[in-house]
Design a protein around this nucleic acid. Sequence first.
DNA 1: ATAGGGTTAG
Length: 502
Amino acid sequence: MPPPPPPSPTAAAPTTPAPPSKPPLCPRQIAALVLNHPSSTLTAASARSLSASLLAAAPAHSLPIPAPVANAVLKLLWHHAPRALLFFHALLRLPPGTRELSPCTADLALDLAARLRHPRQLTSSVLALFPRHGLAFTPRTFPILFERFAVSQRRPDLAVRLFLSLHRSHGVAQDLPLFNSLLDALVKSRHAGKAASLVRALERRFPPDAVTYNTLADGWCRVKDTSRALDILRQMVESGIAPTKATYNIILKGFFRSGQLQHAWDFFLQMKNRCITDENCKPDVVSYTTVLHGLGVSGQLDKARKVFDEMTKEGCVPSTATYNALIQVICKKGNVEDAVSVFDDMIEKGYVPNVVTYTVLIRGLCHARKIDRAMKLLERMKSQGCEPNVQTYNVLIRYSFEEGEIEKSLGLFERMSKGMECLPNQDTYNIIISAMFVRKRAEDMAVAARMVVDMVDRGYLPRRFMFNRVLNGLMLTGNQELSRELLRMQEKYARLRREIRL
DNA sequence: ATAGGGTTAG
């Protein structure tokens, strides 16, 4: 066989593209390439050098990088926000035609930038990329920012200010759905009062709809003020806006959340009685799941199981979430083996357990000190094609430590990021760092210090308490080298925050 | 198309 002629860049006929001899770069490969890139510092220079590496890897594979691949890479790097953003900026620097840029990709990058609590200018610089690259804002763009400002950065005022300046600063029309998303961000950050007064102040411009009222009711429920939530229900009826199923379910959940079990049960009974005249308050699968979960958490397992049987009789089909709730409460208040039989039951009935189902049961097994079986379940979920997430791993890591299996949990930590399954998050680091204090060994202190350096590299700010604890540990064990490194890192980090420019 | 149920700490 003669060797095929070398491909000529000009001769390739566009109508008959040669089939690629190499598979395209897959998200995992790209993510690994980004992770191994020497610099994680977010600057224009490092973004250029990363895009050069991406191009260099390309001949062995095929370009371009389609938008779904770019999105998948950002999600794989979700818990390593600085690297994810570095990838995004490298993507922008790739020559046109070698990458696809979709507004959704930009939304993901924006979410990541806004999640890093400090550099506000980073968020605005990512926001500025939309017009610069001809990308339209999506319906999610500003809701993402409202939530990140209010919830992650604890700055509800910034969210409100952004909303009020939308038209002036970004040429975006302020409509009711956008207003409702702002309210949602406020109530999720426990600012129900702010949300309520905003609705009052702007009620002429934004006449409340059912979503507005439901969001406010949820806001009061989240701060355990169920009587104000009921007020909202009354206001709805007075202003002629029919309560929806969500309205009732929000209040039902609110009663359980605030520990008013009797009120919750009475409200549930009322829903069942009144539904003859008002179809909207007929309990649905969400209502049943809420009640089942609420009863179970308060220790009334038998009553919870009765509710489960009752819903089936009423013709309301349990969802995977219903099973997850049942399995969780049995694990918490009952016997894990019963939870395992519910799990077997659901599979027999044809349900596909999801990552929540597995995580809940793994936690239950760990709690009953059956870690080996929990580990087997981890393998089983993977073989079933259900990807464990960082919470799944965190449970196993935490309980392995509690059982004194320190090496085993460090092994799990290595394993999770090696296979690019999921990257550790802030909880993971906190679990490991606190565990490094139990043996009172100098080596463990050194590991803790490296973990602190790592987490800062990934865009997580350790609590000052944690930072000082590690620093004290290093000094007590006479590790001056690492304590100096930690202090240098702290300085460097403060400088980085000021310097990020793209 | 924005709102409601299931993973968080004894």
